Amino acid sequence: MTTRALPVRARAPRRRIKNSLNRVWVLHSGKIRKVFSVALLLAGCAGLYQVREPIGNLAMIGVELAQAQFAHAGLAVSEISISGQTLTSEQDVFDALAIQLETSTMSFDVDAARKRIAELPAVESVLVRKTYPGKVDVTITEKLPVARWRVDGITFLIDRAGDQIGEDRGAYGDLPLVIGDGAADDALAMIRAIDTVPQLKDELVAISRIADRRWDLIYSTGLRVQLPEQGVAQALRKLQDYQDEFRLLDRDLAQIDLRNDTLVALRPNKPIEETVTTPQ
């Protein structure tokens, strides 16, 4: 009896591929999901990056349209009130407010405007408020000028820290005048020292910084008093004593040198030479 083997059906190639994919999915499905998620996220970011400018432009157009609608509805900023400023120009405040014709009180950013105004040199603090339907109030508190500083032919006003807070246009002539490079940085200390000897302030027109190390006092008569680099307070008191006893500042002198604490050097003004002409 002959035994005949039955033919075995061969697996189709497509079925083998399917079985392999199923096995891979069962074994590595978690990793595959993560890879697909990252790929989708990157594709989404790339798509957004490509359309960022159109989206931004559309957003800006939408904001502008909304502002125009609010403005046409009677909410446009139509009145701006500024108070408290002397050194700060109104134009600088207007520029910092950044209010346009179509700006409405609904869209006006109070905090952003306040920060921009606070950066102006003379502003100590500022309050910005908006009142519906269309008013903006700005109240400024300015820094206090303590001296005038003349450098390169321009006279600035400076605060306690020596910072420029505006130009002197003639309204602060009663403030002390300091001149020279570096004078602003140490002006307050020198002004306080002079205030302790008020008699020396008569006819004092300027305090000059020399080589950013020491000071000279300059009087209306042209007299220059040279002060030492160290021990300024003591030198001023000595000068006050000389003035009380000898009226030294009232004499016809060109220079008083106090840089040496053991002596005082005086330089008189040169005598005026008379020229005699004889008739021909």
Rank of each mutant, 00 (worst) to 15 (best):
R23C: 02
M106P: 02
R267K: 14
L41K: 02
V123H: 05
Q255L: 12
K18H: 05
I61Y: 11
I218N: 10
A235N: 05
D244S: 09
A183N: 05
V151R: 08
L87N: 13
L97Q: 03
D159W: 04
I61R: 15
E64G: 10
A122E: 03
A113V: 06
D174V: 03
V26E: 15
E273V: 14
Q226A: 14
G162R: 13
A46F: 15
T3V: 15
L204C: 07
A254F: 03
T141N: 13
L40Y: 09
G231F: 00
G44K: 12
A161Y: 00
L27C: 09
K130L: 09
R129K: 10
A112I: 04
G180Q: 00
D137L: 05
Q230C: 08
K135I: 00
R33Q: 09
L263K: 02
A68C: 01
K115F: 09
A122I: 02
G62F: 09
A68W: 10
I55P: 06
I165H: 04
A98M: 11
G162M: 08
L175P: 06
A112R: 09
E229K: 10
E245L: 11
S37E: 10
A113I: 06
K18G: 15
S107G: 00
R209P: 05
V51N: 12
L48C: 09
G173E: 14
Y49K: 10
G153L: 03
A68N: 12
A183K: 04
D257G: 05
A233Y: 01
V26N: 15
V128G: 04
I272M: 10
I17K: 14
Y172L: 01
G166F: 00
A265Y: 02
I272L: 12
P279W: 06
Q69Y: 05
K201Y: 05
L21S: 01
R192Q: 13
L58R: 11
D95R: 13
Y172K: 03
G30W: 06
S78D: 11
R267N: 05
A10G: 08
D111Y: 00
G62R: 15
V8T: 11
V232R: 11
T86N: 14
K115Y: 12
P279E: 14
I272K: 15
A5I: 09
G182H: 06
G74N: 06
G84V: 04
L75I: 03
G182I: 03
G47R: 08
Q85P: 02
D109F: 07
I207H: 03
T141A: 12
T103Q: 04
L248W: 09
I179D: 01
G166E: 08
A59E: 04
D92R: 05
L40R: 14
L97A: 04
A118L: 10
S78R: 14
L253P: 02
R247K: 09
H72T: 11
H72W: 09
M106Q: 07
T278F: 06
K18M: 13
T155G: 07
I17S: 13
R247V: 03
L249Q: 00
A12V: 10
E274S: 10
L188W: 07
S83W: 01
D202T: 13
D261H: 07
P145H: 06
A193H: 01
A98L: 12
A112W: 01
P54C: 11
S107R: 08
D257A: 05
A10N: 11
C45M: 14
N269F: 00
L21Q: 08
Y219I: 03
G162F: 02
S220P: 02
